[in-house]
Computed example of a mutant assay.
Amino acid sequence: ATCCLAASAGEKEDASAMQSRSYVHGGLSGLVATVVTFPVHKTLFRQQLHSALVREAVLQLRKEGPVKLYRGVAPPLAVRTLQGAFLFGLQGTLLQRIAPLGERRAPPVLLQAVAGVGTGAVEALMFAPFERVQNVLQNERNHRTLPTLRSIISRLKSQTPAKGFYRGLTPILVRNSVGSGLYFGLKNPVRDALSTQGFSPVVSSFLSGVLNSVAISLPLYPLSVLVANMQARVGGDGGGVRACARGLWRARQRSVARLYRGGTLVILRSCISWGITTAVYDYLEKNSTWLPI
């Protein structure tokens, strides 16, 4: 009996350590991916905001200079690091909680996806203010009136949550929940299928992130465009989700092609970002003996 109790305690400690490592690994993978892909992200943001061509967006950023190229990098760097830690860590925690309830009734892939949906919803509530600040920072029309991060935060604090930090929360909730559910539901099956084709573990993980990002980002892209347009401006009565969606649709001349302008960069950024994130996370999960936890 004593041996059984000791074994049970040891298993609980191992599970706790694995969860702790998931938070650390997720944070590191998010940090690396953000540094690499931020210039692409900023170009994409300009396209979403102004419906500009790739060349026009690149020329805008080039004219502003290299210093302003990384203007606004602090919020996404902090967000993606925290987001990565939160995303992978909480998903593992939720999965551990629901697995005993559904292991006989639902396949593991479905449990992974359900835990991902829950993680995405909580993530949206926690990180929507960071996305709001980031979008305000990256809008060049705010450079004069809101030149610093402190001035932006002060301005948003003076408004109601719905108009301030949590503007655009509904589309963010939908986008993050669906996206996280699909990512965690597809991640391991796609990686394992690629491994059986002779790819190395790192390449399999990277390609898994790439393929999943394509499947997720394309259908959810209009929501990202809507969020960017809702959050980029400060002040005034911007209206609710429906009003903003109708205004965006009219501004894009009721054209799906114009609504998806910047879609090529979405695929490129998502492929690089989630490919790196997935590869770094899976690698650390298998080779993290250097971590003290």
Rank of each mutant, 00 (worst) to 15 (best):
I153N: 02
I153K: 12
R155E: 06
R155C: 10
L156T: 00
K157F: 14
K157H: 04
K157T: 13
K157V: 12
S158Y: 05
S158T: 02
Q159V: 10
P161G: 09
K163P: 08
G164K: 02
F165M: 10
R167C: 10
G168N: 09
L169G: 02
L169Y: 11
T170I: 07
P171A: 05
L173E: 06
S177A: 13
V178Q: 05
G179H: 00
G179P: 04
Y183G: 05
Y183A: 04
Y183N: 12
F184Y: 12
F184R: 04
L186G: 07
K187H: 15
N188Y: 15
N188C: 10
P189L: 11
P189R: 02
P189T: 07
V190P: 11
V190H: 00
R191P: 03
R191I: 12
R191K: 15
A193H: 14
Q197G: 12
G198V: 04
G198A: 08
F199S: 08
F199D: 09
F199W: 06
F199A: 02
S200A: 08
S200G: 15
P201E: 09
S204N: 08
S204F: 07
S204C: 01
S205A: 15
S205W: 10
S205G: 11
L207Q: 05
G209E: 08
V210E: 01
V210D: 05
L211F: 14
S213D: 05
S213V: 04
S213Y: 03
V214L: 14
S217V: 13
P219S: 06
